[in-house]
Simulated assay, not measured.
Amino acid sequence: MPNLKEDFDSLVAKTSLSDSVDRRTFLKTTLGTGFAAAVMPVCAQTMIKTDTVGLTAGPLEVQANGLSVPIYRAQPEGKTNLPVVLVISEIFGVHEHIADIARRFAKLGYLAIAPDLFKRQGNPAAFASIAELQAAVISKVPDDQVLGDIDACVAWAKENGGNVDKLAITGFCWGGRITWLYAAHNPKVKAAAAWYGRLVGDKNELTPKQPVDIAATLKVPVLGLYGGKDDGIPQDTLAQMKAALAKGSSKCEFVVYPNSGHAFNADYRPSYVEADARDGWKRTLAWFKAHGVS
Rank of each mutant, 00 (worst) to 15 (best):
G58A: 03
A215K: 14
D116P: 00
K166N: 13
I48D: 08
L218I: 11
P115L: 09
Y182T: 04
Q134G: 05
D144S: 13
H185S: 01
R104H: 04
S10C: 07
I233P: 01
E205M: 08
D267T: 04
L111W: 04
I138N: 08
E6F: 00
N259L: 04
D276I: 15
D22F: 13
T284G: 06
D143A: 05
V146M: 14
G171R: 09
V69Q: 12
T237P: 12
A38P: 00
V39E: 02
Y226C: 06
A155F: 11
R23I: 14
M40W: 11
R198P: 07
G176K: 05
G280T: 11
L117H: 05
N3R: 14
V154L: 06
L4S: 03
Q145H: 07
A246V: 00
L108K: 06
E90M: 05
G93H: 13
K5H: 14
I48A: 10
K28Y: 09
W174T: 12
E159P: 06
N186Y: 03
F264D: 04
F105N: 03
R23K: 15
N265S: 09
F288A: 11
V154R: 02
P234Q: 11
S129Q: 08
G148N: 12
R278E: 13
L31V: 11
G122C: 07
H97W: 05
A157K: 01
D279M: 15
P211A: 10
A37C: 06
V69F: 02
A290K: 14
L117P: 02
L111I: 06
Q145G: 08
K247H: 03
T284C: 11
Y272W: 00
H95A: 03
V164H: 01
L206Y: 05
P221V: 10
G66P: 08
T56L: 09
K282C: 09
V87S: 03
K209I: 09
S129H: 08
F26M: 12
D51C: 09
S250N: 02
L285Y: 01
S16F: 04
E205Y: 05
K251F: 01
D151V: 01
G201W: 00
A44N: 12
V256P: 07
G292M: 12
A277I: 05
A125E: 12
T29D: 08
G261W: 03
F92A: 04
L27R: 13
S271P: 01
K107M: 02
M241R: 01
A246G: 14
A290L: 04
R283L: 14
G122Y: 06
G32W: 13
T46P: 00
P70A: 09
A275W: 00
V62K: 07
F105K: 00
L167G: 03
H262V: 03
T15M: 06
V189A: 10
V12N: 09
F35A: 11
K282Q: 14
T33G: 10
A286R: 12
L245T: 01
T46S: 15
K107Q: 09
P83I: 11
A106K: 08
V256F: 09
A215Y: 13
Q145T: 14
P70F: 11
L67S: 10
P76Q: 06
I98T: 12
K289N: 15
G232T: 05
R120D: 06
E132W: 00
P41E: 07
A157C: 04
P187L: 02
L117E: 04
D213T: 13
F118G: 01
A193C: 14
Y226H: 11
